[in-house]
Every structure is written in structure tokens, then in C-alpha cells.
Simulated assay, not measured.
Amino acid sequence: MSSRSQETRKKILEAARKLFAEKGYDGVSMEDIAQASGVRKSLIYYYFESKEVLFEEVWIGVIEELEKELFPEVENEKSIAGAIKKLIKKYVEFTLNKSELSKLIARERMNILENGESLSRAKGKYVSLLNKLEKIFEKGKQEDVLNDIEPSTATEIISTVDSIPRKSLIKSVEEFLLKVILKEKVEH
């Protein structure tokens, strides 16, 4: 793919990401994306055969960006309690600092999970993320650093932080999650 071609594709993806975050999958047409990206609608179909394919590409990119924020530092942490604390902190930071992306996740999470047959790549990517989170909490349970909370519940709670509408509450939610999930306060 030529650099001009890559640039056009990138412009389409960025416009689509912004619109999907603002209006949701159902609220955005290919015409909207064409106008926002400054390209003809037919050119979008040259790169992406359908709105679903374009949405999946956007979704997978967003989840990959979230994973890059969460897992490298968590995996380097020596203690599981420290890893869980870092995981919560990083998820909250992602929600606060990458609001367009976290808004897209919050808005479309259920659509992805419920429409798995038509959005199977997107669902697979999201389920993979949830499984990685749950494995970290399972290790915390095995090493007895979790309060009386199931790893699946901890995963569900942390993965919905981006749904909190008032950003001013999110930092206090971080403290709350640490108290609810971990047995004792972990200092760094």
C-alpha cells in the first residue's frame, strides 16, 4: 500500500473512531464518515467492504491501544497485589486521558458482546481483553490478596469504569476499587 493510500485509510479510521465514539455504531452512516474524513463514500468501500468491517477495525485498534496501556507495566510488576493496583490505576488513567476511546468502549461494549456473530472479530478481541484481566485477578485470588470478590466480578467492575459519566468521580472510584478488590492497601 502506498503512503498516500495508507494516509487515506488512516484518515477514514480516525474519522470513524471519532464519530462512533460520539454517536455510536447505529448513529453513524458511511456518508457521515465520508464527510468527516473528506473522502468519497465509494473510497471508504475500497478500503472497508462494509460499515461492520470498518467498525471492527476501529474497535480492535481501540482495544489494542487499551492493552498497550494496561499490560506492559502490569506484567513487569513483581507482586500480584502491585500488579492489580497498577492495573486499576492504568485503567482509570486510560479512561481519564483517552476519553474518546473510553467513550467508544463504554458506548459499544454491549453491542459487541450481544452481536457476536456479525462482529465476531471485535467480540473476540474484547473477550480476549476480559480474559487477560480475569487471569490477573485469578492469580490475586490464588495468592490471597483479593478481598472476598470473584475474579470475574472484579473483571466486570474494572471493565466498566469507562461508563462513569462524570470524570470528576473517576479518581475516587480508583480508591474505591482498590479498597473493594485488594485486601490491604498496597504502597509503592
Rank of each mutant, 00 (worst) to 15 (best):
Y46T: 00
S50E: 14
L133A: 05
K89V: 05
F137V: 00
K78W: 10
K78L: 09
I112P: 08
L130C: 09
E52D: 11
L101N: 04
A83Q: 01
L119S: 03
L133Q: 00
S50V: 05
W59E: 07
R109H: 14
G116S: 05
K139P: 03
E65Q: 13
K125V: 12
Y45V: 00
K90Q: 13
S120G: 00
E77H: 05
M110I: 15
R109S: 09
E93L: 12
E49Y: 03
M110G: 11
V74H: 09
E114S: 13
G140R: 04
E77K: 09
K78C: 04
V92K: 07
F48M: 07
L101W: 13
F55N: 02
L70A: 09
G124C: 08
E77D: 01
V53G: 10
N131P: 05
S128N: 09
G61M: 02
I105K: 08
V62T: 07
E52N: 15
E134S: 10
A106T: 10
L101S: 09
L113R: 12
A106V: 09
L130P: 12
L129Q: 07
E69F: 11
F94T: 04
F48E: 00
L87V: 02
L129V: 04
K85E: 01
M110A: 11
M110L: 06
S99Q: 05
K86C: 05
S50N: 03
P72C: 07
K141N: 08
E52W: 01
L70K: 06
V53W: 03
K51R: 14
A122Y: 15
I136K: 11
N115L: 10
K68N: 07
N111W: 15
T95C: 13
F55T: 11
V74F: 13
R109Q: 14
G82A: 00
E75Q: 15
K86R: 14
E108Y: 09
K86G: 06
E117I: 01
K141L: 11
R121G: 05
G61H: 00
W59A: 02
